[in-house]
Design a protein around this nucleic acid. Sequence first.
DNA 1: TTGTTTATAATAGTAATACTATCAAAAATA
DNA 2: TATTTTTGATAGTATTACTATTATAAACAA
Lengths: 226, 226
Amino acid sequence: MELQFNSTINEGLYLKNPQSTPVGKAIIRESILMMADLGNEHFTFKKLASRINTTEATVYRYFENKHLLLLYVINLYWLLIEFQLIFYTQNLKDDKSKINRIIQILMEGAEGKLKYEGIDVAALYRIIITEGNKVYMTKSVKEDNDKQFFKAYKDLCNTIADVFKSYNAKYKYHHSLASTLIEMAHLQHFFAENLPRLTDKKGNLNNNKYVAQYLDNFVFSVLDKK
Amino acid sequence: MELQFNSTINEGLYLKNPQSTPVGKAIIRESILMMADLGNEHFTFKKLASRINTTEATVYRYFENKHLLLLYVINLYWLLIEFQLIFYTQNLKDDKSKINRIIQILMEGAEGKLKYEGIDVAALYRIIITEGNKVYMTKSVKEDNDKQFFKAYKDLCNTIADVFKSYNAKYKYHHSLASTLIEMAHLQHFFAENLPRLTDKKGNLNNNKYVAQYLDNFVFSVLDKK
DNA sequence: TTGTTTATAATAGTAATACTATCAAAAATA
DNA sequence: TATTTTTGATAGTATTACTATTATAAACAA
């Protein structure tokens, strides 16, 4: 399946729209690969420029700085998940199946079945797992939030919260549960991989399966409580 | 109440024990204040040195680099919480009260009632909230983990998991639930403060109260499920 | 008290990073 | 063909994250 770029990427994130030129597209495509490999800390515009045979100055004409490029990339993820969520849950009848599907979509990243404008989705997911919350854990959250840079995340959270609400209207923390679900999908995966003592994963169980089971149990325990 | 430094701080974290000299103690004390203020990104050894009237070179004699200093500081937090957890739950009879107390301790940071070797505990908690998971979200997790730099976190997680186990032995994800609880205590607090749309906090409710209620609800929902 | 170890101050220097600036050439477009 | 847009090539700056050296001061031991 081939997805289209969702046009709702916040314009304040870039100086020149990277989707509008081949160089711009290369910046996004290769940034994702390099960030997944090196981590955002060791990723630099210089290394990127050299990789795509252009200059640092050119990259700077698209993105003001590294932080905004990372934010752009992570916005792609949020939009991608939101798209999948809506697309793959719309024809499901009951809310329980929808919630199961949501968890599945949040976990599926590592499988990387999708093509997305030439983007390596598996690499994108690896970025989310280790760099995801660094985009808002900054001194500039408030300003970034005022510029709507996290809108896609909030929309995603809302979409999930709405399903929870439909499943159990009496529960009082739909949004917190949604953000917990998203964050734990990433964090418990990271823990299972790197610090397994912080989880209960046994031996040879696949990380995604473990986390999916944990989240499933978690979400339904919370929502089914009388 | 005045706590003692727990001597179990991993020796690999420092070159020279900062507790052993006045300069070392100043490094820790002022690092905490500066990191809380500036965030780890904008905190530098140079700024720190100038603040405590010493030189960069001197700071480097205590800590190999900024990452290890941050890890040291965050280890202080883990040890502090672990200490409080054991101290304040030991005389409670039932597990339910213990779990309530655990949540309370995890939230209490922002209140900062404790003195801890001259350390500003409220500042320490602010560091944890925004810088906490940056210490393991790195390319060097595996090596750092091999050096036991996260042992205090795992111990803390185990201590909490044991209470969960005692409360409900049949539940299958004691450790994941414990790490979820710890992480969400910080993250939902951050969200309530900076990105409240990711939570369900209403108007004038105090952040700590909101988060405590949310955590309480989900922990017992999960553990009480039949 | 003197000698010796240890800790710090003062200073210098390096490689890398995160940018900014300029200007000419090439490509796209009108 | 003229003109605007986009890139390439190059240079330069301030800051960061260190390393290294040497002189001095403090601690401590014989």
